[in-house]
Design a protein around this nucleic acid. Structure first.
Length: 160
DNA sequence: GCCAACGTTGGC
DNA sequence: GCCAACGTTGGC
């Protein structure tokens, strides 16, 4: 499949797993487990190494895009779905045909200033962004190139 | 802690 | 296949 890199946004609760946690890991890389939504899973299955990811802190104060990560490995089965001890255990998923996947994601950069929802909502160019849609709960979502450019520019602290 | 917006489940 | 009930997400 040809085509350039794609852009995504992934949500995490910083109390559970923050961008600082990611930056502290060996290789600054983690497998993004626990996704239990089919739409989000399908987006992860579409991810390719090199794809760029906005790291978003949900249930945070304030909720914010806090930095950038990148995809380093395509989707493969999420081991937590088969572990009865794990909160994300899915008794309905068969090992012969796993229901849930992870991708591997590596830390790239943390913004000097987090970009809060308020700040992002103030940007006309981000009008159609999935994250800003009322009632949007998708934990993995695509980001348009124009949105990516705008958000990362803001993250560098320019163009206010 | 509240609750709106969603997604899933299961009875029918 | 409909839809009510239920569980979850996530901003506020």
């Amino acid at each position: 499949m040809a085509g350039g890199r794609q852009y995504w946004l992934m949500k995490s609760e910083p109390d559970v797993f923050s961008i600082d946690d990611l930056a502290r890991l060996p290789n600054r890389t983690t497998s993004w487990d626990g996704v239990r939504n089919y739409q989000a899973r399908n987006f992860m299955r579409a991810m390719q190494p090199g794809d760029q990811v906005l790291f978003y802190h949900s249930n945070a104060n304030p909720p914010s895009v806090v930095g950038i990560a990148e995809v380093v490995k395509t989707a493969y089965p999420d081991a937590t779905q088969f572990n009865p001890q794990d909160p994300h255990y899915d008794p309905g998923s068969r090992p012969e045909q796993p229901r849930w996947d992870v991708v591997d994601v590596r830390f790239v950069h943390k913004f000097e200033t987090p970009l809060s929802l308020d700040v992002l909502r103030g940007q006309p160019r981000l009008k159609g962004m999935e994250l800003l849609r009322k009632g949007s709960r998708l934990s993995v979502q695509p980001v348009r190139a124009t949105e990516w450019d705008q958000v990362t520019r803001l993250g560098r602290g320019r163009a206010h």
